[in-house]
């Protein structure tokens, strides 16, 4: 394992499987009456969140606390960042407080990479701009593996706003490493220009891809990042790329539906699809804590000099 987790692409197959196997053992901790392990006693984990996030921050916080680490939450609102402090000065402040790991979410792609050069502890990317969100990809792979058994040769379809999605990029990189076949489905306007360099296939026709999918992952349409007209109307987007009841019926019987949340019900996914037993959306949240425990344990549990 590297000292940092910045990109899902940094993980080799052995590293990725080690994280998933570790998470498999740690999943049982959540079922015990005492949901706590003493492993990271005396270690400090800083959650450094420059962007709003509820589930990811809470998930990292729960994971660190279950491993007995001390957690310091730092959100940019109401902090010295709003007084104009730079990322580097913030990092040095945290360093001086003795942070063993910094979990960073930042609006700028590449911020965790910069941070890793300034601090001695481990840096975990919790989402940077439109770049990557590796722990989300890991928890998605973990959720798929628990439902489907293995990932090798599985057909995963990722649908929606790929252009603004760090989840899509991390998932494509990790799933390719784990041997799954990924197909991205999106309107041409919502695909990045460099898409032909990604290790995946691309389609514009959701209905053609659905019957061949083991996993369908719906992405949220990120209106807050959209500064241009990427599609004519929400209704048209929903008609062509939304997962409604009729499309759900075209999927194979064992295929599962995923969504990284938060969902726009009725937009990219119909409510009854999101609530079906074949949807893993609630499981993904629980698995998020487990996978983050595995990542923090593997980064901080051993010698860290």
């Amino acid at each position: 394992m590297n000292r940092h987790l910045i990109s899902a692409g940094d993980l080799g197959k052995d590293d990725a499987l080690l994280i998933l196997d570790t998470a498999e053992e740690l999943a049982r901790v959540s079922e015990r009456s005492i949901k706590k392990l003493p492993t990271l006693r005396g270690r400090t984990v800083v959650n450094l969140f420059f962007e709003d996030s509820t589930r990811t921050r809470i998930s990292f916080e729960a994971a660190a606390k279950r491993l007995s680490a001390d957690v310091i939450n730092f959100s940019a609102k109401g902090s010295s960042v709003s007084k104009g402090e730079s990322l580097k000065d913030t990092a040095l402040t945290l360093e001086a407080m003795g942070a063993d790991a910094v979990v960073i979410r930042h609006g700028a792609s590449g911020a965790p990479h910069r941070l890793a050069n300034w601090v001695h502890g481990s840096v975990v990317n919790a989402g940077d701009g439109t770049h990557e969100h590796p722990t989300q990809a890991l928890l998605d792979a973990f959720s798929m593996r628990r439902r489907l058994g293995g990932l090798d040769g599985r057909k995963v379809t990722i649908v929606g706003d790929v252009l603004h999605s760090r989840v899509a990029r991390s998932n494509v990189l990790l799933l390719a490493t784990l041997g799954a076949d990924v197909t991205l489905v999106a309107p041409p306007t919502l695909l990045p220009v460099s898409i032909d360099t990604w290790p995946c296939a691309v389609s514009y026709d959701l209905d053609a891809v659905l019957p061949k999918s083991d996993v369908v992952m719906m992405l949220r349409v990120q209106k807050e990042r959209m500064n241009a007209a990427y599609f004519p109307s929400e209704r048209e987007y929903s008609r062509r790329y939304g997962l409604d009841r009729d499309r759900f019926a075209k999927m194979p019987d064992e295929a599962i539906v995923m969504h990284p949340g938060p969902m726009n019900r009725g937009m990219e996914i119909a409510a009854e699809v999101a609530d079906s037993p074949r949807s893993t959306i609630v499981e993904q949240v629980a698995n998020g804590v487990t996978i983050r425990m595995a990542v923090l344990y593997l980064l901080l549990g051993g010698e860290t000099s």
Binding site: M1, L18, D21, L26, L298, L300, G301, G302, E303, T304
Partner: peptide, 10 residues
């Protein structure tokens, strides 16, 4: 634990 890299779990 801190004397060696993190170990796989049993």
């Amino acid at each position: 634990l801190r004397l060696r890299p993190a170990r796989p779990l049993g």
